[in-house]
């Protein structure tokens, strides 16, 4: 018999582990991935593979040769960052740009701060924003989602619904004139629209979100607060002037909002800890998103608003404390 072990209590532990959580998220991404493969074809598959492999490679190199510590490439977190980065760029983005984006996402967004769990900002979004600012032309040249194609170049490209709305409004067109140019609700729901690779199908993303909620990988607070705020905020504008503002449903279903609300904002590492803090975080994201969409220069504001709110997370964690036991005494 070997030596008895002495350790502090408790002596039993939950079977959950970091890599189980991470791979759970990876599995939940599969529906959205399949939809994007269907609409964007081979290009999407190549893009995803490139992003995942380069994210893992960058993490490996940094952990092994720069930090000289344990290598945890296979814990699944780099895979998530890779997939989410791929989801956040147009499917026809040159692959070398994806590699650059991955290097920034992992290198700058994650490892600079000490690796998993220590990064204040969502790494995939750091990569996306970096690409957005560095290669604005490529990053806004969205391929049209049609059906499975094996073409890698010369794909038909076009603007996203949000871009159409923004441009139309800027040209002075009325909502009634713009609506025929953008896809219908059903198309938006399924993913038949122009956009980043993984953001197109609201229904696939919601499915993944439900899976994560079932597996207790996320709680409802952030997605509900985020989407609810966008719904209410845009709804108010729509009620005031339906001729100039769009139906809130368009806002919910188009652009990266679904992807952002379900996957990016709920990232455990970069979101608040307490339920109330999560609600505040979600509401902040929602308000910023609508402000950027309606009054900003960019047609889409999900990435920026989540990154901005990420910066507030330490403050929220500090200010918003969970309800303590025995704090308010209500006897009865």
């Amino acid at each position: 018999m070997s030596l008895l072990t002495v350790s502090g209590s408790p002596h039993v532990h939950d079977s959950q582990s970091v890599s189980k959580i991470m791979y759970g998220v990876v599995y939940s991404l599969i529906p959205a991935m399949l939809v994007s493969f269907y609409f964007f074809g081979l290009a999407a598959i190549l893009l995803t593979l490139t992003a995942v492999i380069s994210c893992m490679a960058v993490e490996y190199v940094i952990q092994k040769y720069l930090m000289k510590g344990p290598v945890t490439v296979f814990d699944g977190s780099a895979i998530i960052t890779g997939i989410l980065l791929a989801f956040n760029v147009p499917a026809n983005l040159p692959l070398w740009m994806v590699v650059v984006g991955s290097a920034v996402a992992i290198g700058m967004g994650k490892m600079t701060f000490g690796g998993l769990g220590k990064n204040p900002f969502n790494p995939a979004l750091v990569g996306r924003v970096f690409l957005m600012i560095s290669f604005p032309v490529h990053m806004t040249n969205y391929p049209k989602a049609t059906a499975f194609s094996t073409q890698l170049t010369d794909i038909v490209t076009g603007p996203t619904p949000l871009a159409i709305m923004k441009e139309g409004l800027q040209k002075g067109e009325s909502v009634a004139e713009i609506i025929p140019q953008i896809p219908e609700y059903a198309q938006l729901l399924l993913g038949q629209m122009g956009g980043s690779m993984g953001e197109i199908s609201a229904i696939a993303i919601l499915l993944g979100g439900l899976f994560m909620a079932y597996k207790k990988l996320i709680t409802w607070h952030i997605p509900v607060a985020y989407l609810g705020t966008v719904l209410v905020f845009t709804g108010i504008f729509w009620l005031i002037d339906p001729g100039y503002h769009f139906n809130p449903l368009y806002h919910l279903l188009s652009g990266g909002l679904m992807l952002g609300a379900v996957y990016m904002a709920t990232d455990m590492v970069t979101s608040p800890m307490s339920p109330l803090g999560m609600l505040i975080f979600g509401i902040g994201c929602g308000v910023l998103t609508v402000v950027i969409r309606m009054f900003g220069a960019y047609p889409e504001g999900v990435a920026f608003s989540i990154l901005i709110m990420n910066a507030f997370v330490p403050l929220i964690n500090r200010g918003i404390k969970p309800k303590r036991f025995g704090e308010e005494v209500k006897n009865g």
Partner: peptide, 17 residues
């Protein structure tokens, strides 16, 4: 060693254990 210690690696905690 007569037993194996497997907890937080600080003397302060090990001492209490």
């Amino acid at each position: 060693p007569k037993v194996k210690y497997d907890s937080h690696m600080t003397c302060a905690f090990a001492h209490s254990l």
